[in-house]
């Protein structure tokens, strides 16, 4: 009895600091944020007034601008996720199953290296490339084309670039784990390359794609810096929240609830598909 008691005590001691951190600092601040969304602001002093109201949420749901921006943000996050999945699949497949061991190592490094560079530097690099006299237009001109310039397309492009490693890595890991024998068994039973891809490879990497999409989707949903650098006049939820923080904190808090709700919905759907096990 005493030893079991002692073990429990030790376990409690071990888990207390992270649990307190999680409860107080992490969930606590989220709760305060949510709570403050029900307060209001004095329009002269811009001080927060603790009067209980649901006005902020009503505005978020009814003002057309907010709805447009929320939908745009959602579309951008979805587009980024789709683009990343489409890019990551062939890339990860090549890395995991085609490239010789040495090249594979080099490619993993190449995928990881951009993560070490500053986000801002990468975003500004894209701003330069996407500019009127930038690299993209220079390359597109001989083909009679014109680059996307600054705007929503540029935002999708840059975010897809920024988050691509988060999609490649889980897909690469899943493809590397896929036993060669499964591919052989498929061919042995009469499947051509495309059929093997459809019936064996894609189902095997589906959880990994979903796991990667958790990153690409949620990171895109919350982003507000890239859009300022390459988005032109495009606004995402993050920009609106950032601009409201100093003017109307409760309104900003209510707006923040939108991406939180979207992400919770997304995670629930992904969890149901069993993808969180492979994170």
């Amino acid at each position: 009895m005493t030893t079991r008691h002692g073990e429990r005590l030790r376990l409690a001691g071990l888990l207390a600091p992270p649990l307190i951190w999680l409860a107080a600092a992490y969930l606590g601040s989220l709760a305060v944020l949510f709570l403050s969304a029900f307060w209001t602001t004095d329009s002269f002093t811009t001080d927060v007034v603790r009067i209980w109201t649901t006005d902020n949420f009503q505005q978020v749901l009814t003002v057309p601008v907010y709805r447009t921006i929320a939908l745009r943000t959602l579309s951008i996050a979805v587009a980024v996720t789709v683009v990343d999945a489409l890019l990551a699949l062939p890339m990860a497949y090549f890395m995991a199953r085609v490239a010789p061991a040495r090249l594979r190592g080099a490619l993993v490094v190449a995928v990881l290296t951009p993560l070490w560079a500053s986000y801002l530097v990468k975003a500004y690099a894209w701003r330069v490339m996407l500019g009127e006299h930038g690299l993209i237009n220079a390359l597109a001109a001989p083909l009679g084309l014109h680059g996307p310039g600054y705007g929503t397309t540029a935002v999708v492009l840059v975010l897809a670039y920024l988050w691509l490693p988060y999609m490649i890595l889980p897909v690469y890991a899943a493809l590397e784990r896929l036993p060669e024998q499964h591919l052989e068994a498929s061919a042995d039973l009469g499947a051509g390359a495309w059929q093997t891809l459809r019936y064996v490879v894609l189902p095997a990497v589906r959880p990994a794609v979903l796991a990667g999409s958790v990153f690409t989707f949620s990171l895109s949903l919350g982003d507000y810096v890239a859009v300022q650098i390459v988005g032109g006049k495009t606004q995402m939820l993050g920009n609106v929240i950032a601009s409201q923080v100093t003017l109307d904190l409760p309104m900003a808090a209510a707006l923040s609830a939108v991406p939180v709700v979207l992400i919770v919905c997304y995670l629930t759907a992904v969890r149901r598909a069993g993808a969180l096990d492979s994170l």
């Binding site: 024998q181 499964h182 052989e184």
Partner: peptide
């Protein structure tokens, strides 16, 4: 000829059953 165009099937050592099916 590639494997999928031969009228033979293999029983693999560790079976190689498709886990998601």
């Amino acid at each position: 000829r590639p494997p999928h165009r031969r009228d033979v099937h293999t029983v693999f050592q560790d079976y190689a059953l498709f886990p998601q099916m």
